Simulated scan of single mutants.
Amino acid sequence: MIVSDTPSFGRVVQEAMPPLLLLFVWDVVVTIAYFTFAPKLLEIELPMTLFGTALALVLGFRDNSAYARWWEARSLWGLMINASRSLARQAITLIDDDPVKGKALSREIVLRQIAYVHALRCVLRGQDPLPEITPFLKADEIEELTGTKNIPNALLNTSARHLAHANGLTDSFRRVRIESTFVDIANAQGGMERIKRTPLPMHYRFLPQLFTRIFCVLLPIAIVSDLGILTPLGSTLVGLMFIAALQIGDDLKDPFSNTVHDVPMSAMCKTVEIDLLQTLGESAPPALVPERGVLM
């Protein structure tokens, strides 16, 4: 997630320059054609104001839909952070303070929750979670997880199963309370998986791109008779606005794409790790800070 108030010039050039260069070259071609051999042919009156207004509405609606997906993803991760803190607190306070079994089970559940959020982050980004979760789990559990399709869900099930078999360390009422937190965590994971596996409908992705390209192609033809040699400048600036609006939707439509525009899952997972380790009274790593205006 970009947190800097001012965009990086290099990043802007990397993302916007290729289509803008192509648009500028087309504007120059139209301008040269108008002044050399086809002035009458290019004096065409096109309803670009009407077309541009309709396109702006389409792009605005698409960007709102893409941002709604991004914001829902961020809200679900906020719920995940809160539920992880609640689970750690419940593991410490609702499991009997047995000097051997009770404390060991509490610590095991808390560490497994840290592994869970890291595993979920990696799965959503299409990465291998095992290297990330190895420091928090026992070797035999890592071996059991090898080949598992849904590692985060397996970790959650293991915690619930160990809690259910903790005879004498907690009662049924306490187990039900902790299980409700497991349900909150599973619901948040399900919401994230829904966003990841359900892209924007095809028409939301294809039609705005098609209409934007058509608009940029027709724009210099419609204004060359009025702007003359300034057509490449005017057409490129107007095209930049529509291309930028189109790019915003592309950047936000997948909040788990592991780019500078996605939800800062690495930072949030590190927050969970810090909070839960401190709940156990153990030393915690430093929080992640933005690098070059980007928080991952």
Results as ranks from 00 to 15, higher is better:
Thr146Ala: 14
Leu42Glu: 01
Asn82Lys: 13
Gln113Ser: 06
Ile44Asn: 03
Leu87Ile: 04
Leu50Pro: 04
Lys103Asn: 12
Glu45Val: 12
Asn64Tyr: 07
Glu143Ile: 08
Leu105Tyr: 08
Thr53Glu: 09
Phe136Glu: 03
Trp70Arg: 00
Ile142Asp: 05
Thr53Asp: 09
Gln90Ala: 12
Ile81Arg: 14
Ala119Asn: 04
Asn82Pro: 07
Leu42Gly: 00
Thr148Glu: 13
Pro129Gly: 04
Ser106Val: 05
Ile133Ala: 06
Ser65Val: 14
Arg125Cys: 06
Ser65Asn: 14
Leu145Asp: 03
Asp140Gln: 11
Leu105Thr: 08
Arg107Thr: 14
Ala54Ser: 10
Gln127Val: 08
Gln127Asp: 11
Leu41Gly: 01
Arg85Asn: 04
Thr93Cys: 12
Asp97Ser: 15
Gln90Asn: 09
Gly147Ala: 01
Leu59Asn: 01
Phe61Met: 09
Ile114His: 00
Ser65Cys: 12
Asp128Val: 04
Ile142His: 06
Met80Gln: 15
Leu55His: 07
Gly102Arg: 07
Ile44Cys: 02
Arg112Asp: 06
Arg62Leu: 05
Thr53Ser: 11
Phe51His: 02
Leu42Asp: 01
Trp71Met: 01
Glu141Ala: 12
Gly126Glu: 06
Leu46Asp: 00
Met48Cys: 05
Gln127Ala: 11
Leu111Met: 09
Leu137Ala: 07
Pro47Asn: 01
Leu55Val: 10
Leu120Asp: 02
Ala104Asp: 15
Met48Gly: 03
Gln127His: 11
Glu72Thr: 05
Val100Ala: 12
Arg62Glu: 04
Ile92Met: 15
Glu132Phe: 10
Glu43Asp: 14
Ala66His: 02
Arg112Ala: 09
Asn64Val: 08
Tyr67Val: 12
Trp77Lys: 00
Leu41Val: 04
Thr93Ser: 15
Val123Lys: 06
Lys138Gly: 14
Arg112Pro: 03
Leu137Asp: 05
Leu55Phe: 09
Leu50Glu: 11
Lys103Glu: 12
Leu137Phe: 07
Trp70Ile: 00
Ala115Cys: 02
Arg69Tyr: 00
Ile44Gln: 10
Val123Glu: 09
Thr134Asp: 10
Ala91Gly: 15
Ala66Val: 02
Asp97Phe: 13
Gly60Gln: 08
